[in-house]
Amino acid sequence: MAPHAGQPGAWGPLLPGLLLLAAALSRPAAPCPFQCYCFAGPKLLLRCASGAELRQPPRDVPPDARNLTIVGANLTVLRAAAFAGGDADGEEKEAGVRLPLLTALRLTQNNIEVVEDGAFDGLPSLAALDLSQNPLRALGGAAFRGLPALRSLQLNQALAQGGPALLEKLDAALAPLADLRLLGLAGNALSRLPPAALHLPRLEQLDARRNALAGLGTDELRALERDGDLPGPRLLLADNPLRCGCTARPLLAWMRNATERVPDARRLRCAAPRPLHNRSFLDLDEAWLRCADGDADGRGEEVDLAGPELEASYVFFGLVLALIGLIFLMVLYLNRRGIQRWMRNLREACRDQMEGYHYRYEQDADPRRAPAPAAPAGSRATSPGSGL
């Protein structure tokens, strides 16, 4: 008699397959391998396809995809509405909504050099965008338009080759992102922070590590403070060549009043001037960060800072000399009687010696006591009474 479905034996042949399917569904999604593009749907089922020759965003991504990762492709240029049906030939068309559920888009290491205006149009649910490790040279001022839900934008190691013009465009592109919470700008050789990034009203963290920041000015620090109930953003500044001179005083005072705003504050080190090289920034004494008279921009501060270490060494050397001198005076005071006796003996010895010299001088000056001259050779010696 064949077993019914409710009996245990009915599931016997299907049990191994069900267990494998359950294991596959419970297994977390693996990271997308290099030269591949991956997408995951609502059920977190990961699919992968070759992307080595990919030169434009793929068209076979299902509309229910939530996450899309493209790694190792050669996209070069992201044109308008590139992920929502835009024309690959450069003719801008009205963007459709082809991926309405897409929330995360990762485009790292794809040789992207240009991001045109509206490149991400038609992605209404996109919350996280990662363009890190791409050699960006041009960025449209409206590149991130149409992303009302964007919360995280990563541009790490992506802006170093664009120059000042790219930073100006970045300012314009960041301005509309009113709901942005996380901004990554690490490893971009930035000498200043984009002003638009400092004025984002809901920004919670700004990653500015591994750049070329010599410090932050008073205007930048003022922009990080907010008048409303929202707290200011956290700021990551490690591995920047901070110049610990006159212009560093506002940043040092700000960090000491709000240390929690800089989670990596203990990792900050001075790169200049030379006497303060590699010294912990938080451990600096504000008295060392002096400005020259009339030197508002901090030029010449290295002369003022020639400084702290040498002054400290001079003070220590002076204290040692003072201690040695004090000990010497104490020894003289404790042995004053012996020193007086020694001085008296020395004076008497000198007097005796001088009296001896004086006596010998008087004896040598008396002609009667002068020695007789020697007789010439061959003469005959006579006695006084010989009469000869």
Rank of each mutant, 00 (worst) to 15 (best):
G245W: 08
R274D: 06
G86S: 10
Q35R: 14
L276A: 12
V320L: 13
S152C: 01
A238L: 08
A165Y: 02
A81Q: 02
D239P: 00
L46S: 11
A212T: 09
L182H: 13
A178K: 13
R256H: 14
L78N: 05
A104S: 14
A365L: 14
P28Q: 09
C38S: 14
L185G: 03
R210N: 12
A377Q: 11
A312V: 02
E260M: 13
F120S: 02
Q157Y: 11
L21N: 00
L155Q: 03
P8L: 07
S50W: 04
N335Y: 00
P8D: 09
G325I: 00
R380C: 06
R369F: 08
R145A: 13
D207Q: 13
Q154Y: 05
A173S: 12
G90E: 08
A52T: 11
A172E: 15
E94R: 13
R181G: 11
L107Y: 05
A22F: 05
S50E: 14
V77D: 08
R279G: 00
R336D: 00
A292W: 04
L126V: 01
G294F: 11
L183S: 08
D219S: 14
E94M: 09
A248T: 03
P42K: 12
A178N: 03
L289P: 03
L326P: 00
G162F: 06
Q7K: 06
D227C: 02
L221K: 06
R266Y: 10
C48L: 04
R106W: 10
D171E: 15
A322V: 10
D229N: 09
L155G: 03
L326F: 11
R151G: 10
P308A: 12
L224A: 08
E348Q: 15
P58M: 02
L123I: 04
R202Q: 15
L203V: 09
G338P: 00
P63M: 03
P250L: 10
R55A: 10
D229I: 03
R344L: 13
R274M: 01
P233M: 06
R106A: 12
A381S: 06
L224W: 09
G232F: 06
G228L: 04
A149W: 01
A29R: 13
A173K: 09
L221A: 05
W342L: 14
A82S: 15
A2M: 08
A127N: 00
L319W: 08
A73C: 05
G51M: 01
D130V: 06
A377N: 01
V97E: 15
L268V: 07
A22K: 02
G162Q: 05
R266D: 15
P33Q: 07
E91N: 07
N335S: 03
A10C: 08
D89I: 00
G6D: 15
A175M: 11
S132P: 08
M255L: 15
A272D: 11
A197D: 08
L329S: 03
R59T: 11
P135T: 07
A10Y: 15
P367T: 07
E116S: 13
P241V: 07
P100E: 07
G318T: 04
A127L: 01
L147D: 03
T259Y: 09
P376S: 01
P42W: 05
R351H: 12
E91T: 09
A296L: 14
D64E: 15
A127V: 02
P33G: 12
